[in-house]
Amino acid sequence: DMPHRFKVHNYMSPTFCDHCGSLLWGLVKQGLKCEDCGMNVHHKCREKVANLCGI
């Protein structure tokens, strides 16, 4: 059981939050991507995600 390793990410195409399902808005640093499993989340959704990475 490992925690997610979220890192700020710049998305080049429209991407949706894997937690709430809404679009990650903006041009740069729109959200966070787990370096291990690739989960994408809003900055505000980070604390709502279970801290178990499903690598």
Score class of each variant (00 low, 15 high):
residue 48 K to L: 10
residue 35 E to S: 11
residue 20 C to E: 05
residue 8 V to A: 11
residue 18 D to G: 12
residue 52 L to I: 10
residue 41 V to M: 10
residue 2 M to W: 04
residue 8 V to F: 04
residue 23 L to K: 01
residue 12 M to P: 10
residue 42 H to M: 04
residue 33 K to F: 14
residue 38 G to F: 15
residue 29 K to R: 11
residue 15 T to S: 07
residue 16 F to E: 04
residue 40 N to A: 06
residue 14 P to S: 03
residue 19 H to T: 13
residue 49 V to D: 11
residue 27 L to D: 04
residue 12 M to H: 15
residue 47 E to A: 09
residue 7 K to D: 04
residue 29 K to Y: 13
residue 16 F to C: 08
residue 17 C to Y: 00
residue 32 L to E: 12
residue 25 W to K: 04
residue 44 K to G: 11
residue 32 L to A: 10
residue 21 G to R: 15
residue 44 K to V: 08
residue 51 N to M: 02
residue 29 K to I: 06
residue 23 L to P: 06
residue 16 F to T: 12
residue 42 H to P: 00
residue 21 G to T: 13
residue 21 G to E: 14
residue 20 C to L: 00
residue 54 G to K: 06
residue 6 F to C: 04
residue 43 H to G: 11
residue 28 V to P: 01
residue 13 S to R: 09
residue 55 I to H: 12
residue 19 H to M: 14
residue 39 M to E: 14
residue 4 H to M: 04
residue 36 D to N: 05
residue 51 N to S: 15
residue 4 H to A: 02
residue 8 V to N: 08
residue 34 C to P: 01
residue 39 M to V: 13
residue 24 L to S: 03
residue 15 T to M: 12
residue 12 M to S: 08
residue 40 N to E: 07
residue 9 H to Q: 12
residue 4 H to S: 04
residue 3 P to Y: 15
residue 34 C to D: 02
residue 54 G to H: 09
residue 53 C to Y: 11
residue 20 C to I: 00
residue 18 D to Q: 12
residue 24 L to P: 02
residue 44 K to L: 07
residue 38 G to Q: 11
residue 6 F to V: 04
residue 14 P to R: 04
residue 46 R to S: 10
residue 15 T to W: 05
residue 13 S to H: 06
residue 52 L to Q: 08
residue 26 G to M: 03
residue 30 Q to Y: 02
residue 16 F to L: 06
residue 26 G to I: 02
residue 41 V to P: 00
residue 39 M to P: 00
residue 18 D to L: 07
residue 48 K to T: 08
residue 42 H to R: 07
residue 44 K to H: 05
residue 29 K to E: 07
residue 3 P to W: 14
residue 54 G to T: 09
residue 46 R to C: 11
residue 48 K to P: 10
residue 29 K to P: 03
residue 8 V to Q: 05
residue 15 T to D: 05
residue 20 C to K: 00
residue 8 V to L: 05
residue 30 Q to K: 01
residue 51 N to E: 02
residue 9 H to R: 10
residue 38 G to R: 12
residue 38 G to P: 11
residue 36 D to Q: 11
residue 27 L to A: 04
residue 40 N to M: 05
residue 50 A to G: 09
residue 26 G to A: 02
residue 40 N to D: 10
residue 4 H to V: 02
residue 34 C to L: 01
residue 40 N to V: 07
residue 34 C to Q: 01
residue 27 L to T: 03
residue 13 S to G: 12
residue 9 H to E: 12
residue 36 D to C: 14
residue 26 G to H: 01
residue 3 P to L: 15
residue 6 F to E: 03
residue 7 K to P: 02
residue 23 L to Q: 03
residue 46 R to A: 07
residue 1 D to V: 13
residue 3 P to F: 15
residue 33 K to V: 11
residue 19 H to E: 15
residue 37 C to D: 06
residue 17 C to H: 00
residue 25 W to E: 15
residue 25 W to H: 03
residue 15 T to P: 03
residue 29 K to V: 07
residue 4 H to W: 00
residue 18 D to H: 08
residue 53 C to W: 05
residue 3 P to K: 15
residue 47 E to D: 07
residue 52 L to V: 11
residue 44 K to W: 08
residue 39 M to H: 08
residue 35 E to C: 14
residue 39 M to D: 10
residue 12 M to F: 15
residue 51 N to Y: 05
residue 22 S to H: 13
residue 3 P to N: 15
residue 19 H to A: 12
residue 27 L to G: 03
residue 12 M to G: 09
residue 11 Y to N: 03
residue 23 L to G: 05
residue 9 H to Y: 10
residue 9 H to V: 07
residue 16 F to I: 12
residue 16 F to S: 08
residue 18 D to N: 13
residue 24 L to G: 03
residue 32 L to F: 08
residue 4 H to D: 05
residue 13 S to A: 08
residue 28 V to N: 11
residue 15 T to N: 09
residue 33 K to C: 14
residue 32 L to S: 12
residue 34 C to H: 00
residue 31 G to R: 01
residue 52 L to M: 09
residue 41 V to Q: 04
residue 38 G to H: 11
residue 52 L to F: 14
residue 42 H to L: 04
residue 49 V to W: 10
residue 14 P to E: 04
residue 52 L to R: 07
residue 37 C to R: 00
residue 36 D to G: 09
residue 28 V to K: 06
residue 32 L to G: 11
residue 30 Q to H: 02
residue 7 K to R: 07
residue 13 S to K: 13
residue 4 H to G: 07
residue 10 N to H: 06
residue 44 K to R: 13
residue 55 I to V: 10
residue 44 K to T: 08
residue 2 M to L: 09
residue 10 N to Y: 04
residue 14 P to W: 08
residue 13 S to Y: 12
residue 41 V to L: 11
residue 6 F to T: 13
residue 54 G to D: 14
residue 8 V to P: 12
residue 26 G to F: 03
residue 13 S to V: 06
residue 6 F to Q: 05
residue 2 M to Q: 04
residue 52 L to E: 12
residue 48 K to A: 12
residue 48 K to V: 10
residue 46 R to L: 09
residue 29 K to A: 10
residue 43 H to W: 08
residue 31 G to S: 01
residue 22 S to C: 13
residue 26 G to N: 03
residue 7 K to F: 14
residue 47 E to H: 07
residue 27 L to H: 02
residue 11 Y to G: 02
residue 51 N to C: 06
residue 4 H to L: 02
residue 54 G to F: 08
residue 46 R to M: 10
residue 22 S to L: 14
residue 44 K to N: 05
residue 36 D to P: 10
residue 30 Q to C: 02
residue 23 L to H: 03
residue 24 L to D: 02
residue 53 C to I: 12
residue 28 V to L: 10
residue 28 V to I: 13
residue 44 K to D: 08
residue 48 K to W: 08
residue 39 M to A: 12
residue 39 M to C: 09
residue 42 H to D: 05
residue 42 H to Y: 01
residue 27 L to Y: 05
residue 20 C to D: 14
residue 11 Y to F: 14
residue 8 V to D: 15
residue 45 C to T: 01
residue 2 M to P: 06
residue 42 H to A: 06
residue 3 P to C: 15
residue 55 I to F: 08
residue 11 Y to L: 04
residue 51 N to F: 04
residue 50 A to T: 07
residue 2 M to T: 09
residue 22 S to P: 05
residue 49 V to M: 11
residue 29 K to C: 10
residue 10 N to M: 04
residue 54 G to M: 09
residue 2 M to K: 05
residue 24 L to N: 03
residue 48 K to R: 12
residue 47 E to T: 12
residue 17 C to K: 00
residue 47 E to Q: 10
residue 20 C to Q: 00
residue 27 L to S: 03
